[in-house]
Write a protein that binds this DNA or RNA. Structure first.
Lengths: 242, 242
DNA sequence: CGGATCATTGAAGTCCCTCAAGTCCTGTGG
DNA sequence: CCACAGGACTTGAGGGACTTCAATGATCCG
């Protein structure tokens, strides 16, 4: 029933580093199964200590925190290939929640085996650290965006990042991609109000820079949008998959 | 001349997990020396690929990014015990710069030995990943702050975090600590203007919540300041030192 | 057909930014 | 010894980007 790592289509996407046959075999040992959850399901909960780790095989999700005043900060949009639960695996407790935006297929790993990654497979441990460092890198960009960019720049930044990510996964067809989030999600990610996010999107639409409606995102000229976003390097590095 | 890891005072501070004698000996092998730099020196440069990794022994510093429009986002304040250069070590390139705010004493490690961490010492590799995860955790809080908190809440949050950090390092005496940064640093960390940061600090001063002047920070009632900052958990976890 | 969710648009208000000026302090050089 | 420049901090005033409030459509669904 479950996909074998060997046959996993994800591995072959551009974004990911290739793995040796032997590495794949090793990973297979960790996989305890697959899990499918409906849109809206909370997969990991802030403060909890999940016994499981996941890799997203299909679908999209949302990382977020809820502040004491009830406000929500979206930290990250989750795409196929993303690894979930590292924080719980390392520090014993999640500092954010993860919620499925679409129906989600997850590859499930057992956390109790986590240690053997480090003991037996230094290369896998290195990949794990790489992923943590990559997330930190991204969060640094996010802070800079929320702190220093204007609304137009921030929204452009987010859309470019999303689009690049999707390109690396082969999810862009004819300059368009599935983008199943709602405007409130983007607003909460950028520290903007829903109303202003809406107006900003409208402005980008009018300027022919980005069209997002009905769950579909189209970017006619990625270069131009990046310019507006004040983004220089447009190439995300190849990343390991876990 | 250089301190032996065995005798390093840092290790004994509350914030840090204890290390076995054997672990210490292993770390000693990596240490290639010590380095002292003057205030204002750039230690690591965005985009560069430093051959060295550092642990701060004494002094304070600043992690920051410069955007295309010249604006600066301060990502983090650096305290003794902080590990610098992980990104370069893992991903091969720094995504931010690090600048000394005071005279700085650094413990220098050779990056070329980085791999043996993973190969020979899974426990050290685990610590490394822990540190990366901790940074990510912190950055998540930072995004939430810049995105969702008001100026008063944000400044309070920053000061509480700083104060707690200093407490764990035994740097707080009589409710006061050395805080050698300038208001512009704090402003750039929180995405606020210098002027507004100044006025916010004045307001906190008037409300008897925090007094920061002449490089000294006093917090008469940490609990009260945390309340204003909307911070619940006030205890940063013990962290490994590298 | 009501109820719910999401997108959209107008209007009013506010938090924060920018501009501007002035103080205090330190270091430097005539 | 004083004049002057530079850096950090402070304070007032005006403006703007974004928020909040409010109302309307559109779509989907039981």
């Amino acid at each position: 029933m479950t996909t074998k790592c060997e046959n996993c289509a994800l591995r072959r996407k551009d974004t990911f580093e290739s793995m040796s046959a032997e590495e794949i075999k090793f990973m297979e040992r960790f996989k305890v199964g697959e899990m499918v959850v409906e849109a809206g399901t909370t997969i990991l909960m802030e403060g909890s200590n999940s016994p499981q780790l996941f890799t997203v095989l299909h679908g999209m999700a949302l990382r977020y925190k809820i502040l004491l005043n009830g406000k929500r900060q979206v930290l990250n949009l989750i795409f196929p290939g993303d690894f979930l639960g590292l924080q719980a695996g390392i520090m014993g407790e999640m500092s954010h929640s993860v919620e499925a935006t679409t129906k989600l297929t997850l590859c499930v790993f057992d956390r109790s085996e986590f240690w053997s990654f480090f003991k037996e497979r230094p290369d896998r441990a290195f990949s794990l650290t790489w992923l943590a460092a990559l997330d930190e890198h991204f969060m640094g960009e996010a802070v800079s965006t929320v702190g220093q960019r204007t609304a137009v720049q921030a929204v452009s930044w987010a859309l470019v990042r999303v689009f690049l990510r999707a390109q690396g996964l082969g999810l862009v067809k004819n300059g368009a991609m599935r983008f199943p989030f709602v405007q409130q999600d983007l607003a909460d990610a950028l520290g903007l109000s829903l109303v202003h996010t809406n107006k900003t999107l409208a402005s980008l639409r009018k300027r022919q820079l980005a069209h997002w409606s009905d769950g579909t995102l189209r970017v006619p000229d990625l270069e131009a949008l990046s310019q507006v976003a004040m983004l220089e390097d447009m190439s995300p590095p190849k990343r390991p998959i876990m």
